[in-house]
């Protein structure tokens, strides 16, 4: 299995008051699944995604990612997991405004280059040591991805010169460039018109057919319909 959440609870504190965002959630995600997470705002779906994405730690419970217990890893170790295992796609794309499409896609590769394979990232190892071995190879991989997503003619355009759909496809290429087993998308179609939304969802479907596990958050039923499995959250608990 890709993800195994065991009795995950997350409690936020605002002053003295404890606000539980997730209550004892247990969840197993097998490789190749395509899951849509739905729920009203405040239902805890973003918190769940943050924990699955190794951006946040649970208050209690255990999280296994590809059989590895990542619950108690430190900041650097989590950064390494995010870099290698997880691709992020955001509602507002989050592209670097000054970088070209190609450079945006290459970004995760730079942070991959300085890591030792054990994920400790002690910073002593030479650049270009693991995975991608040279600048040219990086560029080539980013290039291929953008071509595959139909942006071969947009490589050197800045985000502001691209349409919303194109920007989201650049972001998807960025998420895929380190070949992660898991892609997390937080309302990826929230800023797109419905035609473009369906194009992007078709793309997700293709990626899923290629074997990538996808979890996405959405408000819209017709977007969620692209997924194979639906998880509905309410008050920090899985309803369906």
């Amino acid at each position: 299995m890709v993800i195994h959440l065991n009795q995950i609870t997350k409690i936020y504190y605002s002053g003295e008051i404890a606000v539980p965002a997730l209550k004892n959630i247990s969840l197993v995600v097998e490789p190749g699944e395509f899951i849509a997470v739905m729920g009203s705002s405040g239902s805890g779906k973003t918190t769940l995604m943050n924990i699955i994405g190794c951006l946040d730690k649970p208050t209690s419970g255990q999280y296994f990612l590809e059989e590895k217990n990542v619950t108690n890893l430190n900041r650097n170790e989590l950064a390494h997991i995010r870099n290698k295992k997880i691709g992020f796609i955001f509602q507002n794309f989050n592209l670097l405004p000054l970088a070209t499409a190609l450079e945006n896609v290459e970004l995760p590769l730079y942070y991959a280059a300085t890591r030792s394979p054990d994920g400790r990232g002690d910073g002593n190892d030479l650049p270009h040591q693991s995975g991608v071995s040279s600048g040219r190879q990086k560029r080539q991989r980013a290039n291929e991805l953008l071509n595959r997503l139909g942006l071969g003619h947009r490589l050197n355009h800045r985000p502001t010169q691209l349409s919303g759909g194109e920007q989201q496809r650049v972001a998807i290429a960025r998420a895929l460039v380190n070949q992660p087993p898991l892609v997390l998308a937080d309302e990826p179609t929230g800023n797109l018109d419905s035609k473009t939304s369906h194009e992007i969802m078709t793309l997700f479907k293709q990626l899923n057919q290629d074997g990538i596990t996808i979890i996405l958050i959405t408000h819209e039923k017709d977007i969620a319909d692209y997924a194979k499995r639906l998880i509905y959250l309410k008050d920090g608990q899985v309803v369906v």
């Binding site: 900041r75 950064a79 989050n94």
Partner: peptide, 15 residues
């Protein structure tokens, strides 16, 4: 936001 994004795609604090 840029810092957050860099961290999300794998930048460590020291990077």
């Amino acid at each position: 936001r840029e810092i957050g994004l860099r961290m999300a795609v794998g930048a460590r604090g020291q990077d």
